[in-house]
Amino acid sequence: MQNKHNKGWYLLFTAPLIIIFLTVVVIPFVIGIYYSFFSWDGIAANPKVFVGFDNFIKLFSDTRFLESTWKTTFFTILAVISVNVVGLVFALLVTSKLRTSNIARTMVFMPYLIGGLILGYIWQFIFLDVFTLIGEVTGFEKVFFNWLIDMDFALYALVFVFTWQMAGYIMIIYIAGIQSIPNEVMEASMIDGASWWQRLKNITFPLLMPAFTISLFLTLSSAFKIYDVNLSLTGGGPANSTEMFAMNIYNEIFGYGNYGYGQAKAIIFFFIVAGITLTQVYITKKREVEL
């Protein structure tokens, strides 16, 4: 009797969320795998033709897709380095008890709240007008010009704006990590005569490994999945040179109407994202030290 009673409560507490979760995430995921084996243009009246693994084989000869994969990887490497370096430097400065710490933290975090789409539009204007103006006035026209119309610089512009958006967020995570380092450890090392750099290298960094694991995970996965900033800043241009993985999938499905083929790309996308992030977490977790 008691047991049956408990089962009722269990169902009442968990069923609503599980049903929503199943319909929004789990079932579409399974349907998605099914679609990836078909050739279909998305129009309900048209037939879905079973093609087996053809969609997946086709990926290897799709130059635009391969190009986009390579560009996304390159972008991710640059973005992860730049976001983490900027975030960590700010975190170290902000926690070194300066009078401007609080106000700096507030300002640096602000862009994260504004969101990728709107930040992209703001920076579109800055590259277009402010950069050209600075170039004209200072004469450094090789650096200050409209980055968005250059095939190589457009990608750097994307890294730049992505860093602008994410650095404050990552900074907060590093701050939480730095503040969790016990004061006694720092004081003891100072008494022992350790220099600033020795303390940073031998105490701060090893004890920051958990924060490092999380920051890397967050930047890796969000850089690889970048879409909003990509859409509003470059729109994939010029000439598809900044069409990242996520945008390539969107265009394949909703732009060209290749629903089956696009979904096969989307499934591969999942395996890559899961593979990269799990490997990273596994590697960095091993290096975490216990105090």
Binding site: T23, V25, I31, G32, K225, I253, F269, F270, T277, L278
Partner: peptide
């Protein structure tokens, strides 16, 4: 098992789900 499924699906990018989700 339910908890594991919740955790595992955190890795699925939105782009993998968007088309089948709209169909469903």
């Amino acid at each position: 098992i339910i908890f594991m499924v919740f955790i595992a699906t955190m890795l699925i990018p939105f782009q993998t789900l968007m088309m089948p989700l709209m169909q469903f």
